[in-house]
């Protein structure tokens, strides 16, 4: 795969003008992770309404691939139920990018995905734990 193929216009567009970039005033879900090897970081914030992702924003710094992938992912899950979003597979993110991703860049492409999953799982987990407590 060539660099030209990786850095298509659309990737550069998302890198320079990311959608859903910023923070929420009162997020219900907040998750952040750092790619240790390169220092890239992504934080995702989500406002939940009726079990769905009502609003989602991200911020951070990193390479074109990590920033574009995260931005695309936030658009992809907007309005989706938490349960469904938590089940998104890696391949869906790679399909969104629709560019060849070398094994060395997989971590970049999937940083936002990882953060989203951690956020959703810990929220759903807590919620489930909470439900269990109430049941008792």
């Amino acid at each position: 795969m060539s660099a030209e193929a990786m850095y298509e216009e659309i990737i550069l567009d998302y890198y320079r003008h990311p959608q859903n970039f910023g923070t929420l005033e009162k997020p219900d879900i907040k998750a952040k992770d750092v790619n240790i090897s390169c220092g890239d970081e992504v934080e995702i914030q989500i406002a939940v309404k009726e079990g769905k992702i009502a609003q989602i924003m991200f911020h951070g710094k990193g390479c074109a691939i990590s920033q574009a992938a995260t931005s695309m992912l936030t658009e992809h899950v907007q309005g989706v139920s938490l349960e469904k979003a938590a089940k998104i597979a890696k391949q869906e993110v790679l399909d969104l990018l629709s560019i060849p991703i070398s094994p060395m860049r997989l971590k970049c492409a999937l940083l936002g995905f990882k953060v989203l999953k951690v956020g959703l799982y810990s929220y759903l987990g807590e919620k489930r734990d909470g439900d269990e407590c109430e049941d008792e």
Binding site: S2, A3, M6, Y7, Y15, R16, C38, D40, G62, C63, A64, I65, S102, M104, R105, C108
Partner: peptide, 14 residues
């Protein structure tokens, strides 16, 4: 420019 060092390294690796 605004090229992230990783992206630059990818292009050079090519």
């Amino acid at each position: 420019g605004d090229i992230h060092p990783h992206d630059l390294a990818s292009v050079l690796d090519d």
